[in-house]
Design a protein around this nucleic acid. Structure first.
Length: 588
RNA sequence: GCGCCCGUAGCUCAACGGGAUAGAGCAUCGGCCUUCUAAGCCGAAGGUUGCAGGUUCGAGCCCUGCCGGGCGCGCCA
């Protein structure tokens, strides 16, 4: 409908240009058609006259008159008014407004979907937490946001591919394997000093005991031999905890041998990645693919990417390392691709990965990152540009951390220290639906306070229940109807929508008509919170309606019309909540 | 020091590619269950949109400078 109004407007403007009343140049500011803020202003408002007034050298209201005179007739438009500084306010004809309800009933779960994206392929990568520990609540926001965004884009007609990048190569994996092994040794009865910078979380010990149970004592070595002649760990003794850890890793590999070391690493990786996948699954988040960094290494793609940068003349050697001239593409400084020890950096892998995504044919590549990685954006874009790709094809959405409070105190979120609230705990205590809705209700850039006590103790106040309750209430009305032996005739209702003349009904009607536009707008802006906010608004309009007007009444045509309206409402709530990964219960 | 994000009602947050009178929830106060679920509804009160300039028909939104908070600024990931 919005597009219909825009099209009428465009025709009127064309006519004015032909008549010489408007300059023909293309550089005119873009006109907008938007939903009127207030019902008193009709259904749609256009700012064309105000925007074009200067170029036309006429007063906005005068120009608005001229535009209105040129508007083609349309059955869908009841009237066009000029208001305020020069807005053109369009009021829909009643039948055009009713069409939304008929469409919702006809299309069901497909209502709100569009072909705006024309099936264009979009790649979205989100969460991608290192597989070194369970997901914590910080990842929850990225998961809720990324999944909802992906769903909204799908609904808007894009071919969306969801992917999780698994950092299963490099030093962190070695530290993980050693951490697991040390806990395994402890479980086998060895006594040893656990390194300060190892992964100390209880989950490591749990998996270590599983390993001992599954594969026996074949990896047991005396702890004394393992820790002999290592450099000092404590800084107080002139040591470096990280260097100590590296020495311990090297010792572990030597003592265990490559095969056993690899086995421990794989065991730890599979166990933890399994936990992550289970958590995401229970959170309602599924991926098309978990993309392995190790695979990127093994396939030679990292080397290939580095070489391509070199062949394009964008690298140089200095201090024994190979550098990418990122500063030539807008980054603050140049970045190392290959260290002086010969190993490629994490950045090199990321260049290869992003290049790979583009080469797989995705027109748009969306990354959802935690805000702490924001400094990383320019260098990745720089690399893509240096390789001849348009940097705009990569859209990095930064999600601010949710700051957790428990008992008025801010909680630590360090993975290595093991002190964090896991996503699983959050889900078990607050519930999947409440957690997901709460996360996705806010703009991702907004810093957000997450008070666990509040979320737990007053979870009934969570807005998600408000929306779910509206859905359940509608279902209940139809239950009641059946209980009274009455029959709902949808066709009769759809044919009698003009009977819905109450203010409350008009408001709900308008909202149902807006739903497809909300999906399109949310997809275009890549802001799923717009959908969440809309659903809350729709639920509020319904609750108000429910309290003001009885549905189950004697007048059959009016009753069916009202039931058709709330059935359409139920459908939109179900569709919208579904995109956000929230259940739409039939009773509460 | 430099860069990115944020600053809106007592609190948590909205405000739809600059639009008309800045809106919700919570908390506070006052009403509404013999009738479809009170996890609901109605009403009241609550604001110099951090501060100061600028851009234009119009600024919470854009620009500049301050103030305050968060996060970055590794041959870590």
């Amino acid at each position: 409908m919005k597009r219909h109004v825009a099209s009428l407007l465009a025709q009127a403007l064309d006519a004015l240009r032909e008549a010489g009343e408007l300059p023909a140049e293309a550089a005119l500011p873009e006109i907008q058609v938007e939903r009127a803020r207030d019902r008193a202003y009709g259904d749609y408002a256009a700012n064309a006259a105000m925007v074009l007034a200067k170029a036309a050298r006429r007063k906005p209201r005068e120009l608005a008159e001229a535009i209105r005179d040129r508007l083609p007739a349309s059955e869908a438009i009841a009237q066009v008014e000029i208001a305020g500084p020069g807005f053109l306010n369009f009021t829909l004809a009643p039948h055009a407004r009713h069409e939304a309800v008929r469409a919702a009933l006809r299309e069901g779960g497909a209502y709100g979907r569009s072909d705006r994206g024309a099936g264009r392929p979009v790649h979205i990568e989100f969460v991608s937490a290192n597989p070194t520990g369970p997901l914590h609540v910080g990842h929850g926001r990225g998961a809720a946001f990324g999944d909802a965004l992906a769903s909204v884009l799908e609904a808007a007609g894009y071919a969306v591919h969801r992917e999780y990048y698994v950092n299963d190569a490099g030093r962190q994996m070695d530290i993980l394997a050693v951490s697991l092994w040390l806990r395994y040794l402890e479980a086998a009865g060895e006594r040893l000093p656990f390194p300060a910078k190892g992964y100390r979380g209880e989950y490591i010990a749990v998996h270590a005991r599983e390993l001992l149970e599954a594969e026996g004592r074949r990896y047991v070595h005396p702890a004394g031999e393992l820790f002999a002649d290592l450099p000092p760990e404590a800084e107080a003794e002139g040591g470096d905890p990280e260097a100590y850890l590296d020495a311990l890793v090297a010792r572990a590999r030597a003592v265990l041998g490559e095969t056993a070391h690899r086995r421990l690493l794989d065991f730890a990786l599979e166990a933890i990645l399994g936990d992550i996948r289970a958590d995401l699954d229970a959170f309602g988040v599924t991926y098309h693919r978990y993309f392995s960094e190790r695979q990127l290494v093994d396939s030679g793609r990292i080397e290939a990417a580095v070489e391509r940068l070199g062949a394009a003349g964008h690298t140089y050697e200095a201090d024994g390392a190979l550098w990418f001239r990122a500063s030539a593409f807008g980054d603050d400084k140049d970045r190392v691709l290959r260290r002086d020890n010969g190993l490629t950096t994490y950045f090199a892998a990321d260049v290869a990965y992003h290049l790979e995504k583009l080469e797989r044919g995705y027109e748009t590549v969306i990354d959802v990152w935690g805000a702490d990685h924001h400094g990383y954006v320019p260098r990745v874009k720089a690399a893509l540009q240096a390789l001849g790709a348009e940097a705009e094809r990569l859209d990095v959405r930064l999600v601010q951390f949710a700051i957790l409070y428990r008992g008025g105190e801010r909680l630590s979120m360090s993975t290595r220290s093991g002190e964090f609230v896991t996503l699983r705990e959050l889900r078990e205590e607050v519930g999947k639906d409440a957690a997901r809705f709460f996360y996705v209700l806010r703009r991702p850039e907004q810093h957000m306070d997450f008070d666990l006590d509040l979320a737990k103790s007053e979870s009934a106040d969570n807005p998600v229940y408000y929306c779910q309750y509206a859905h359940a209430r509608i279902c209940s009305v139809f239950e009641q109807l059946a209980g009274r032996g009455l029959h709902y005739d949808r066709e009769r209702g759809a044919a009698a929508l003009e009977r819905l003349d109450a203010e409350h009904e008009q408001i709900v009607l308008d909202l149902i008509g807006r739903y497809p536009e909300v999906i399109e707008d949310a997809a275009a802006a890549r802001e799923p919170h717009q959908l969440a906010q809309y659903l809350r608004e729709l639920a509020a309009a319904f609750h108000t309606y429910y309290n003001a007007v009885p549905f189950i009444i004697e007048d059959e045509a009016l009753r069916d019309a009202r039931l058709a309206l709330i059935e359409a409402t139920r459908q939109v709530l179900a569709n919208g909540l579904g995109l956000l990964g929230v259940e739409a219960p039939e009773s509460m």
